[in-house]
């Protein structure tokens, strides 16, 4: 894992059909030394890892991301220009306490960065 965390959760709000997180990316995370040396771009896979961490926060346990049916990256996340992100996530049980469908959208105001349809299970 990163010595300097990739992100922090600023807030978590339970809504009727989803949970909304406000997130702050950390431009000092060492990942940006190599992604990329000339231009800091948040790696798509780190955004997926961040979504899993938020899903773990929702489920109250460690989760294994065993399947992604589709993950669309619709805009580049650059921590210098857009360090604040919102995440809307839904966990729907497949086998209660064992596995869930995970739907998530990473966005800021009216711009969408990532849409994820996945399955997670108890790690």
């Amino acid at each position: 894992m990163f010595k300097t965390p990739f992100f922090t959760i600023l807030s978590k709000e339970e809504q009727a059909d989803a949970t909304v997180f406000e997130l702050q990316l950390n431009p000092d995370c060492e990942v940006y030394q190599g992604h990329f040396p000339e231009k800091a771009v948040a790696p798509g896979v780190c955004n997926i890892g961040m979504i899993r961490s938020c899903a773990e926060e929702m489920a109250g346990r460690k989760l294994f991301l065993n399947a992604i049916s589709q993950c669309k990256f619709t805009a580049l996340v650059t921590p210098g220009e857009c360090p604040r992100l919102s995440l809307r996530a839904q966990l729907t049980p497949i086998e209660p306490g064992q596995s869930w469908k995970l739907r998530a959208t990473l966005y800021h105001e009216d711009k969408t960065y990532l849409e994820l349809k996945a399955e997670v299970m108890t790690a």
Partner: peptide
């Protein structure tokens, strides 16, 4: 060249 992932489909992880 710089390359970016546009979409991931049908990802399955069997073990780590």
């Amino acid at each position: 060249p710089l390359g970016f992932i546009g979409e991931i489909r049908k990802f399955a992880a069997y073990r780590l």
